[in-house]
């Protein structure tokens, strides 16, 4: 059910010119910016890191706005009641939606790598060529699970849009997607340590540039599973509360 649901939602998201254009174009601009910045900083040997980092940023943006607005989008499409009426747990029905946002985020990663290779001649010499796709897939799965927590948490907040708009850059920054975590103030360390994005980004970067991939990926998935459990419980609570107060269809 999760696989079929995720495939359905990936197809649906992939038919939106807006989603596709944003998922492809904005990360490419970010990657271009990063490439010029790395070159200007005398780090031409780290261009692959720039392309991968910009791709990760695109993945997070897709998950943040896609998963954060997952329930609201179903509400706008008039499909929320049907989802809640299904004989399966609402969390199980919504998990494919959030996983799909992560999977469509891979468009950003593919776009930045292809852009870097074709336009700037960045060699795609991954330090761990086998581990790299596994790390990306694990990171995507982890972010999809984290997305369920975002989806159920945001629906409780009246001004979730404002929160989503605020969360894009801080997570890019604190998770070390482009700026190394070591360059940030020390107090950001504990914040970064509990975010699955930090460990997912570390696993992908280490697969690309060298380093122990599996420990970081394992921590990413462990935190993501905890987020999934929390999101599941929250979603169940939200669904019950919405049914009791008859506010399911209300914005």
């Amino acid at each position: 059910m999760i696989a079929v649901g995720a495939l359905l939602h990936v197809k649906q998201l992939s038919r939106s010119p807006f989603e596709i254009a944003i998922a492809l174009f904005v990360p490419v601009v970010q990657a271009t910016l990063a490439v010029y910045l790395f070159r200007a900083g005398g780090e031409p040997d780290r261009l692959l890191e720039a392309a991968v980092g910009a791709g990760l940023m695109g993945v997070w943006s897709t998950v943040l706005f896609g998963s954060g607005g997952a329930i609201q989008n179903q509400r706008w499409q008039g499909t929320l009641e049907m989802i809640m009426l299904a004989p399966r747990s609402p969390a199980l029905v919504l998990l494919p939606v959030t996983l799909a946002t992560g999977i469509t985020g891979t468009y950003a990663m593919l776009a930045t790598l292809a852009w870097g290779r074709l336009l700037y001649g960045i060699p795609l010499d991954f330090a761990h060529p086998v581990a790299f796709p596994v790390a990306v897939a694990g990171c995507i799965a982890g972010l999809g699970m984290f997305g369920l927590l975002l989806a159920s948490g945001f629906v409780l907040l009246r001004h979730a849009n404002a929160l989503a708009n605020m969360l894009e850059y801080p997570i890019w920054l604190v998770s070390g997607m482009l700026v190394p975590v070591t360059a940030l103030p020390g107090w950001t360390g504990p914040v970064a340590a509990v975010l699955p994005t930090t460990w997912g980004a570390r696993a992908v970067h280490e697969a690309a540039s060298g380093g122990p991939v599996w420990p970081a990926l394992a921590v990413c998935l462990a935190i993501s599973l905890a987020c999934l459990a929390a999101g599941w419980a929250l979603m169940t609570y939200v669904e019950r509360r919405a049914r009791v107060t008859a506010t399911l269809a209300l914005a």
Binding site: L37, A40, E168, L173, V179
Partner: peptide, 20 residues
């Protein structure tokens, strides 16, 4: 969206600039 979000955008690029 308009006061806090842009501040984080500035921090992101300021730290990126410091790094390189």
């Amino acid at each position: 969206t308009l006061l806090v979000g842009p501040l984080f955008q500035l921090f992101f690029f300021a730290y990126l600039g410091r790094e390189f």
